[in-house]
Amino acid sequence: MIKTLKIEPLTKEAFAPFGDVIESEGRDYFMINNGSTQRYHKLGEVQLDEQGQGIINIFRAEMLEYPLQVKMLERHPFGSQSFIPLFGHDFLLVVAPVGDGSMHIDPATVRAFRATGRQGVNYHRGVWHHPIMALRDNDEFLVVDRSGPGNNCDEFYFDESIQLSIELD
């Protein structure tokens, strides 16, 4: 099977099966700090199992080479994982639904999105996704995820007969 993934714009509606889009554009807010700050409240939920704790990290990523063959996806069964760009650069996402909990991904369900530098994402627990896909070298992302006991990262490698690729416009 050979499939080139169409890169879709990242919208709240299109990304809903995979998680939350973290952005202020078009979202409700309320005023805090004596009226000097707009609070865009609960744009995503940190999902944790009962043994984990939420942690905040910075990831510094290099740009991958395109066209890119998607060979693997990962998931975090015990907690959600959020990526928020710190330098305001666009980045790519490749995702597949949670599925039935097995270690299998239907290639027909894999989708690609382009996030603007003003959008972050929160992958829900168990959502398959490609590791960070920066579009510039040394790009940085604020990452909120889970720390705690257990293996919180499953990896799925596609059979070599399956070729999923991404080409930049």
Results as ranks from 00 to 15, higher is better:
residue 113 F to V: 10
residue 55 I to P: 04
residue 45 E to M: 14
residue 52 G to F: 07
residue 69 Q to E: 08
residue 34 N to M: 09
residue 91 F to Q: 00
residue 17 P to Y: 06
residue 47 Q to N: 05
residue 54 G to M: 11
residue 71 K to M: 07
residue 71 K to H: 13
residue 20 D to E: 13
residue 120 G to Q: 00
residue 78 F to H: 08
residue 69 Q to T: 15
residue 95 V to T: 10
residue 52 G to W: 10
residue 12 K to F: 11
residue 26 G to V: 13
residue 70 V to N: 00
residue 51 Q to E: 14
residue 35 G to N: 15
residue 115 A to H: 06
residue 29 Y to I: 12
residue 106 D to I: 02
residue 69 Q to M: 04
residue 114 R to P: 02
residue 107 P to A: 08
residue 23 E to S: 13
residue 61 A to G: 02
residue 68 L to M: 09
residue 64 L to N: 08
residue 106 D to M: 01
residue 85 P to D: 02
residue 32 I to R: 10
residue 27 R to P: 00
residue 82 S to W: 00
residue 110 V to H: 03
residue 47 Q to P: 05
residue 111 R to W: 03
residue 79 G to I: 00
residue 16 A to T: 11
residue 12 K to P: 01
residue 96 A to F: 13
residue 72 M to K: 02
residue 119 Q to R: 08
residue 32 I to P: 04
residue 13 E to P: 01
residue 116 T to C: 06
residue 31 M to A: 15
residue 86 L to C: 06
residue 103 M to V: 12
residue 110 V to M: 14
residue 53 Q to I: 14
residue 27 R to I: 06
residue 119 Q to M: 05
residue 103 M to D: 06
residue 56 I to L: 13
residue 16 A to L: 15
residue 56 I to V: 12
residue 112 A to P: 01
residue 120 G to R: 00
residue 92 L to Y: 02
residue 46 V to T: 08
residue 117 G to F: 04
residue 33 N to R: 14
residue 76 H to K: 02
residue 54 G to H: 07
residue 120 G to N: 09
residue 50 E to C: 11
residue 47 Q to T: 08
residue 19 G to Y: 00
residue 113 F to C: 09
residue 99 G to D: 05
residue 107 P to C: 07
residue 37 T to K: 15
residue 85 P to V: 03
residue 38 Q to C: 05
residue 51 Q to C: 05
residue 98 V to H: 10
residue 13 E to I: 03
residue 98 V to F: 12
residue 47 Q to K: 14
residue 16 A to Q: 08
residue 113 F to Y: 14
residue 60 R to A: 09
residue 12 K to I: 06
residue 43 L to V: 01
residue 72 M to W: 07
residue 69 Q to A: 05
residue 46 V to I: 15
residue 96 A to E: 11
residue 87 F to Y: 05
residue 46 V to R: 05
residue 110 V to R: 03
residue 91 F to A: 10
residue 33 N to D: 11
residue 105 I to S: 04
residue 60 R to Q: 13
residue 88 G to Y: 06
residue 12 K to G: 01
residue 50 E to S: 06
residue 43 L to E: 04
residue 36 S to H: 14
residue 80 S to R: 06
residue 117 G to E: 12
residue 22 I to K: 01
residue 55 I to H: 08
residue 90 D to E: 13
residue 107 P to Y: 11
residue 19 G to H: 00
residue 82 S to M: 12
residue 53 Q to W: 10
residue 78 F to Y: 04
residue 71 K to P: 04
residue 114 R to D: 03
residue 49 D to Q: 10
residue 91 F to I: 01
residue 63 M to C: 15
residue 29 Y to Q: 07
residue 51 Q to A: 12
residue 90 D to Q: 08
residue 61 A to Y: 08
residue 41 H to V: 07
residue 117 G to R: 07
residue 30 F to D: 11
residue 30 F to Q: 03
residue 87 F to I: 06
residue 61 A to H: 04
residue 44 G to M: 15
residue 44 G to A: 15
residue 101 G to F: 09
residue 106 D to G: 07
residue 66 Y to L: 01
residue 92 L to T: 00
residue 18 F to T: 05
residue 58 I to D: 01
residue 41 H to Y: 13
residue 109 T to C: 10
residue 71 K to S: 03
residue 19 G to P: 04
residue 62 E to H: 14
residue 110 V to P: 03
residue 16 A to I: 02
residue 20 D to I: 00
residue 27 R to W: 08
residue 107 P to E: 11
residue 40 Y to K: 04
residue 60 R to K: 13
residue 20 D to P: 01
residue 102 S to G: 15
residue 12 K to Y: 09
residue 67 P to E: 05
residue 85 P to T: 07
residue 81 Q to C: 10
residue 117 G to M: 07
residue 81 Q to D: 12
